[in-house]
Every structure is written in C-alpha cells, then in structure tokens.
Design a protein around this nucleic acid. Sequence first.
DNA 1: CTTTGGATCGTCT
DNA 2: GACGATCCAAAGG
Length: 201
Amino acid sequence: VKALPRSFYARPALEVAPDLLNKVVVAGPCRGRIVEVEAYMGSIDPASHAYRGRTARNATMFGPPGHLYVYFTYGMHYCANVVSGVTSQVPRDDGQAVLLRALAPLAGLDEMRARRRAARRDRDLTNGPGKLCQALGLDRTHDGDDLVVPGAAVWVGDDGVAPPEVPARSTRIGISVARDEPWRWFVAGDPHVSGTRRASG
DNA sequence: CTTTGGATCGTCT
DNA sequence: GACGATCCAAAGG
C-alpha cells in the first residue's frame, strides 16, 4: 500500500471526493477501504463548517491539503475529513474537505470490535462517519494529522484498486442547508455504505 | 425490514 | 441558550 501524494489532495473537493473511493485508510493495525464520502465546499457551501470562516475548531481545514480534520458533534461522536482544496491557484485557502462516511473493514477487525461493542455484526463496524472514527480510535487528538506519511498514526494509501468507473452519487446526509447539492459518492451495492441509501442514486 | 425519540456537550450567537 | 456533517435501542409491520 502506497501513501497518496500531497498533490492528490491539492484539488477541489468535488474532484478529490470520488477519487478517494476504494483508497485505504490505515490507523495502526486497522485498515479500511473507503466506500462512501461527501464533499464540503468551504466558502461556497452553507453546509460546510468552513462556510463562516476560520475558527479554533475548524482551523485545520484552512491549512495545507492532505491533513485530517476531526470534529466532535452531537455531544458524543467524532467525524473525520480529508482536507483538500486548491492552494496554489487560490489566494487564500477555501476550507474545502471530504467527509469520510463509511469504510469496508480490511484488517484489525478485532481492535475495531473491541472499540465498537455496540456493533453486533461486522458490517456495522464502520458504516457511518461516527462509527468509523470509533472503530479506528480517531478523536480530536488526531485533528491536523498529516495523511501523506506512511506509518503515521493515520494515513491514506492506494493498494491498486481503482475507484469505480461510475460511482453512485446522491445528495448529502444529515444536513439542513444546501440539501440539493449532489456531493455524496459511494460504491454502489457495497454492504458497508451507511444507512439505507445503498442503491445507486 | 422501517420509524422514532433520547442521549449529550463543544461551539458559536 | 440553541443546535448539530450521529448513533442506538425499542417498538411496530
């Protein structure tokens, strides 16, 4: 498994998101294939945490691409994003990022099961943005981690599996604004895609 | 299988 | 003081 270069992330989130499908997230002994993502388009996206500008919480999104933005929400869950966006062609960074919504577990299943006692079936280990963070042990201490360093606490690699030629696409989940933007992508038919929106659409 | 409501607290207004 | 880029158990079909 080869780490993705920084240049992979230094593009608009709308391009990076579908390209992340079938890439591999590595966290210690745990590995999972990305099967569902959502793009958040910073200053032009009212649903993005970066829409209203930089704060202490979202500062990582305004930094260099290829880093991990982890936030705490609903009083009990963490969600992880890959920072993307154009840095060389835009005067100031835009706060674009790609939310990791679901993984297909590949390795470290025992560790994942130990961290996710509520998951009765293995298909429930990482089939949601909060679930995958719990399974991989990701929290705010991982906010800002650099994903291009192989062997780091968290990084993202390519094991030779290409993204789907025609990824399934839909509107995003769980937001109250910008509901109509078709900025969610997933691997059609994969049982680890979150919720019931598994069919292509 | 689907629907519903409660949990819980950091962050920003 | 209000509200989440969510999850889970419980209950009904």
